[in-house]
Nucleic acid binder design. Sequence first.
DNA 1: TATTGTTATACTCTATAACTATA
DNA 2: TATAGTTATAGAGTATAACAATA
Lengths: 147, 147
Amino acid sequence: MPVDRGRTKEEVAGEAWMAMYRFILGGEGQRNFHDACEHTGLAPGVLKTLLSLHPGQPQSMGELAETFRCDPSYVTSLVDGLESTGLAERRPHPGDRRVKDVVLTAAGEHRRDEAEKILSQPPEALDRLSFTELRQFRDLIEKIVGA
Amino acid sequence: MPVDRGRTKEEVAGEAWMAMYRFILGGEGQRNFHDACEHTGLAPGVLKTLLSLHPGQPQSMGELAETFRCDPSYVTSLVDGLESTGLAERRPHPGDRRVKDVVLTAAGEHRRDEAEKILSQPPEALDRLSFTELRQFRDLIEKIVGA
DNA sequence: TATTGTTATACTCTATAACTATA
DNA sequence: TATAGTTATAGAGTATAACAATA
């Protein structure tokens, strides 16, 4: 390890970012998500939509499109996927009848919980940290995400 | 925040994992990758392939398929994408002529560097940590990934 | 006239099945 | 006969363009 490694804050941030990035995208995260799709019987896109809906928090089609940075027409098909299986439903938005709000049904909330349970199974690699280190790590990452 | 939060190591690991997972998949990582695709002029899959090849380290088609957990036929099209633009080339594997090794060309190495430069741009959210916290965080994440 | 969402359509991504060459 | 890779093809995933309803 070179002595001048991570000299500036930007460099250290870059190093931390790349490590995290590779960790998630290099298999660990993908495997979990794939498992969650299989277990819930949902296609990846539909599951992603299910997860971004929260109980009691309607989201408009447009908001979902913005969240996913995708075309609104694709949101139509994603929400169709949820609605056809009774996991969510569209409701007229009070005040602007052009807008449609999407809300989870009771079944949707339940299915979402199942998916979250699978996704939150941490990869074994986290065992490389001690309990103390892990708490430290969790606090730091939560500070980063602004939780 | 509930008092009994993160009581066991498993719980804390789950909390840390979910925060990290959301951070990467919830936009920050996607944006960077999208930028890298645009800048390099490569389709997402092709860029992913470029990134998993390392200078001086040939990888067989089969190894790539295993890395991506995808069908070998898809690797064919991905490597075609690299080869048609002169970023990589196929070579007969010494010792087993069924196998084809994929290696980066000089142009490929250069393009790969460009992409890495963009991808390693850390999201601004990392600024929420102090320099000291950031170093701590980097050390922990690198311990996790086994660097 | 501008905006939200849908429909119809086409393009990209990825897998399955049948095939070729080598082992 | 079994394995590595390719070809042809089909199925998801996602976007673009034209449209209907509401503002």
